[in-house]
Every structure is written in structure tokens, then in C-alpha cells.
Design a protein around this nucleic acid. Structure first.
Lengths: 342, 342
DNA sequence: CCACGGTATGGTATCGATACCATACCGACA
DNA sequence: TGTCGGTATGGTATCGATACCATACCGTGG
């Protein structure tokens, strides 16, 4: 592998001149530039980013650590991050924490070693530990999707509380009175917010939430399957289910099907986050959609601004996007014999 | 950010000794190790991978360049790669070439600059250019999913020809005589192989393939939609469709639905590659499945072996996995009034 | 008693680039 | 004419780690 010195020798110039050609910086005569460029082409020279970054203290790399790379919501978000990053000349490294705080901290450590310029983080639990670690190295970080109470940090997320309120309200308006919420684990802010919005909607309709109306489980198909089974076995079976994410929705659908319950005729089912068009033959589920791509883009822009302004300590931002409710078949029509509220 | 020298000073040892503690190499007394480890903890020292790699000429990083990160087939494959890589202590960098040879070469250049130790490549077209570039830098590379004729390189792929033969044979056995193949672009080896297997099955049944029975398009939902529309508008409308990948299958399904054709009653539809369980409520499509995860794992193992054996020029390997045909509803029952072959 | 191998540690050069400073030419202007 | 600023280029130190070699202690065996 030829180095910058080989190129310099070959072109008959100093290595610093080659550096100027590569980086398009400083003063350069047309002739020198041409000679250097020819030497680069002839030798097939590729600059060594490691050496460059070691000296310049900038890797031009951002890191995105998220919790589930198999979930289209996050891959769409990642796409938004990638597009914004590459437009600004940054490379992106993804890592998948699998909802595990341990994996998350392992990856963040590796990424710190790699000297990434900034972090985009979907925190596995809404804990501050990882963020504090990043802060302690004076690396900027923007948190996405989930709130992290108790620490000053930029956050881009969605209004989960309002989204859950809206979905629940929809079910109430259709006449449902007995609804179960299939929620993610405690401590994950989106799950907690959705539970809160659900409860607020019930109370706003004058309904006292039942003791077991909120179930907790994994944010996965398996989790949804288990929670739905549990809900369907309840003494007072709910007439509608609110699922906290797309995989839970699908798991719940499977459980309902196996139990011989038709959706939406026997039980209504609504959820959060769509599956992308490319994966779904017939859009069926009524959902609250979060603007995943836009969230990724916005978070990256904030991070890039932080990088530009460097030490200038601005106020931390919290950007909250609204959710959008899309009504499809799975919520069903009005429940007979019940008076819709509202 | 503390450096290795800060740690050394703080622990009262030479920096090389700190290096030995970090890397667990060479001779070390228990007491020195303990003192150094304490210093590391007290200062919150994180080694700088850039500097380490610059000197040691190893980044412990592999690169995976694939053509469509939104396709579950490739994310599953990526998972196989990641698991095998991280088990061996390697970090993985993903890149998405979007089926564009230009993006592919851009990314490969960036990755070469980053001095990755090895490449796993799904070539956008079955061209040799990118592979030659990587070879010219003496970096090992394993090609996945697609054959690249005309160059000596390790390849891990599936028997697409046989898979397409099997699916077509299945349709023939069900009585179909007029089948269209919704294929990917020319020059992509999997698409070409699938077309070839399709033709071989027709000929083996004594059927002369019609002039337009093979359609070419993008490996996407949109591509499948357009090709299926075209097939459905043919003078002699096919009674069955063979789709070259999962997204094409879904696009074809949509087109059939819009044209008022029921699947499988009015037209049978079979394809390649499943969608993961987490995305599908009701498994419906008859498909030839490729062992994506296993392919990623195997390719990574071959790459890691190359890295270990370093310069030792072994013969290049070509590993070809079989496909597995899973019969579900979309292929339908025997076509009435036609005698199945076989 | 000395040589030698195992153990433990350190000094210095080096990886490939850029930061910073120095140099030198040239025309313009006082 | 001397100086000054713009242009063009190069030399040297340096980023933070490891490779390589050197050093020194210790016990053991001839």
C-alpha cells in the first residue's frame, strides 16, 4: 500500500503538498495539483483514515446505537440518520443493543475507542449511565425515541402519550369499554408514556381502569403473543387491545387467531408503528405512526450542529413530533349495543 | 481524554507496561498489573483504537457491503455475519449499496481508507471491478449470495438454478402450463440463475418457453408490481407466476389484487425468500428459502480463516447451499382440467 | 563462580497523516 | 529601493499506540 510519502516522492513534491491536494486546502498551483493527482492515480493511492484521524482528532464518523435492527421502525429511522449524515460528509456506524443495557455499554465503549465524533442513541433502558459515559469523554450525543429523565441532553422523540391517548379515544368512541394495553417493559419511556396516555383516555371517559388492564412484556412478536394470550384468558375478556409497537401487534394478532377470535369482529386491535409497504400485502392495522425517517434526520441535524459549534454550550433541545393515527380495518366498526362516547 | 502515557505516569510505570496490561501480553507481575488497572479505572482511560491500529496494522474490523438493507433476507444474513464476527472479536461495519455499482465502489473506497481487515460483499452487479480493487490492496474478500464469473474469489451462495427448477416443477405438477417468471435485472447472477432453472424445468416437461415468459425488472416491490401488471395484460395470460425474490412476490400480489385476480384461485404465485415471522401475520406464500443466516455465518468463517492464514495462498472456495421449498397456500391446488405432469 | 534462560520492565523508533511554522518568490505600493 | 502581503511549497514535531530491542534481576546447573 503506497503512502502519502510514496506519492510525494513519485510526484517530486513534499508530502504536505499531497495532503493539500487530497484535502483541497491551502495554496496550490494548477501544475502541481495535476502532477500530484497523476501520481495518486498511477500508484492507486488511498489515504489512511486512521493516521489522518489520529492527527486531526476528527474521524468524520457518527455512531447510531439502537435497540432492534430487525424492526422496520428503527431501520427507517436509521435511513434518515444515514441520509443526513452522508449529506454532511459523515460516515455512519450502526450498532444493535438488542434492548440490553450491557450490550449498549459494550458498543459505546468500542465506539469511543474508535473515536467517533458523535453519538445517536436509542437508550435500551431509560437510564443515564451510558449517556454519562459519553458525556465524560466530551463527545456530543443526541437521544432518539425515548426520554431520559434526570440528565441534560438533546432528545428527539414522539409524543407517545398523546398517540396512545388518541388510539384509546378511538376505541372508546367505537363503544369499547373494556380495553387491555399490551405494553413494553417498565422503564422504557415510550412504553410508560403509552400506558399513561391509555390511562388518561380511560379516565377522561369516566372509566376506572381495571387492575390488570396494563400488561407488560417484551417489545417483540413473542412478547405480544404472550401478553395477548394472557389478556384473552382474563375473567372479564377485553373487547379491544392496544399494542405498544408493531411486533407486539403482530404477536397479538397471532394469539387472537389461535384462540379463534376474529379481528376486528370478535376483538379490535390497534397499535403503534406501521410495517413498511414492501413487507405488507394488505394494510390492515389501525395504528399511530411515528415519523421515523424524519426523527432520524432531525436528530442528526442537531448532532451536526453541536459538532460545528463545538464547545459553545447551548441549551439542550427537546424535539417532540406528533404521532399520526391511521384508521384501517383492525379497529372495526362501532360495537353494537354500546353507546359510543364523545 | 487521558492517554496511555497519562496512565503510565499515574501508575509509575512505563507506557509499554500499560500496553501489556491492556492487551494481556508479555510478562507482568501481579502487583504491577493491579496498579495499572487501578490507574486505568481512576482516570477512566479508554485506549485509542486509531493509534493502535495505525501501529499494529490491524483494525479488527470487517466490512459487509450489501445491496438492500431493507430486505429481511439481507438483514438476516447480516445477523449471521455479525454473530460470527463478534464471536471472533471482530467489529462489523455495514454498508448499503442500493444495487448501485457506483455506491458500492464509493463505500469500498471509504472502507479501504478505514483499513478494514476484510470484506464480505454482495456485488451489486456481478462485475469484477470492485473485487479487483479490493484484491489490489491485498485485502481478503468473500463474495456472498451472487456468483462472479471470471475472477478467482471465495463465494458463498445458494443454488438458485435448482431452487427455481423446483418451484417451476411444483407449478407444472399442479397442472400449470403457462407460467411467467418475474425476474431481477440481467447481470445479477441470482436472477439469471433463476431464469435458467425456470427454463430448464419447462423444457424438462416438454414445454417450449414462450417468447415473453421471462420478465425483467427491479428486485423491489415496485418492480414486482410492474412486471406482474405486464404479465396480467398478456394476450395469453399465465396461470401462474414465479417471482425472483420476496419483494417482487409482494408487488405481484398487489398487482393481482388490483386486477381483481384472486391468489391462488385465479392465478398461482410462488417466490424466493421468506419474510421473517415477526413481519407476517399469516404465512401465505409458497417459497424457496435460502438459509440466509447460515450463509452469512459460513462466509464470515471463510473470511476469518483467510485472515488467520494470512499470506498462505489456498485454493478459493465456492460453497453452494441448497434451497428449501416450503409449500403454502399461494401455489394453490391442482388446476382443474389439466393433467399434472410427473 | 559464571553462564544462561525465564521473568519483568523500559526506551526508542515508527505507523501515516496533519498542525504549525518557516521559507521564498513575486508584484505592488510608499 | 525596501517592505509588505498574497501565493506556493516544504520541514519538523506530533497524534497515541505498539514493534523491536535492550536491560536487569533472579535462580539454577555445570
Amino acid at each position: 500500500m503506497p503512502t502519502i510519502h510514496d506519492v510525494a516522492k513519485h510526484a517530486g513534491v513534499g508530502s504536505i503538498t499531497v495532503s493539500r491536494v487530497i484535502n483541497n486546502s491551502g495554496y496550490l498551483s494548477k501544475e502541481t495539483r495535476a502532477r500530484v493527482e497523476q501520481a495518486i492515480a498511477e500508484l492507486g493511492y488511498v489515504p489512511n483514515t486512521l493516521a489522518r484521524s489520529l492527527r486531526s482528532k476528527r474521524t468524520n464518523t457518527l455512531a447510531l446505537v439502537l435497540t432492534d435492527i430487525t424492526n422496520p421502525f428503527f431501520t427507517t429511522l436509521a435511513r434518515g440518520v444515514e441520509d443526513a449524515a452522508s449529506k454532511a460528509g459523515y460516515t455512519l456506524i450502526f450498532c444493535n443493543s438488542d434492548e440490553s443495557a450491557m450490550k449498549e455499554s459494550t458498543y459505546v465503549n468500542i465506539l469511543l475507542q474508535k473515536q467517533v465524533d458523535g453519538f445517536l442513541l436509542v437508550p435500551a433502558q431509560s437510564k443515564t449511565t451510558t449517556i454519562e459515559l459519553i458525556h465524560s469523554r466530551a463527545v456530543p450525543v443526541v437521544v432518539i425515541d425515548r426520554a431520559v429523565p434526570g440528565i441534560a441532553v438533546d432528545v428527539v422523540r414522539c409524543d407517545s402519550e398523546e398517540g396512545a391517548f388518541g388510539l384509546t379515544r378511538l376505541l372508546l368512541e367505537l363503544g369499547h369499554r373494556h380495553i387491555a394495553c399490551l405494553c413494553g417493559p417498565k422503564g422504557v419511556s415510550t412504553a410508560d408514556d403509552r400506558a399513561a396516555g391509555f390511562l388518561r383516555a380511560l379516565r377522561s371517559a369516566g372509566i376506572a381502569p381495571g387492575r390488570d388492564c396494563i400488561l407488560r412484556g417484551e417489545l417483540s412478536q413473542e412478547g405480544g403473543y404472550l401478553m395477548a394470550q394472557q389478556a384473552l384468558r382474563m375473567a372479564h375478556k377485553p373487547s379491544a387491545l392496544l399494542a405498544a409497537n408493531n411486533f407486539i401487534t403482530i404477536g397479538a394478532m397471532k394469539a387472537a387467531q389461535e384462540a379463534g377470535e376474529r379481528v376486528p369482529e370478535d376483538i379490535a386491535l390497534v397499535g403503534f408503528d406501521d410495517l413498511p409497504a414492501a413487507m405488507v400485502t394488505f394494510p390492515f392495522f389501525t395504528v399511530a405512526i411515528q415519523p421515523a425517517y424524519e426523527m432520524g434526520r432531525k436528530a442528526t441535524e442537531i448532532l451536526l450542529q453541536r459538532l460545528k459549534s463545538h464547545g459553545a454550550e447551548r441549551q439542550h433541545e427537546e424535539v417532540i413530533f406528533p404521532t399520526q393515527i391511521i384508521v384501517r380495518r383492525s379497529s372495526g366498526d362501532s360495537v353494537m349495543g354500546l353507546h359510543p362516547i364523545g
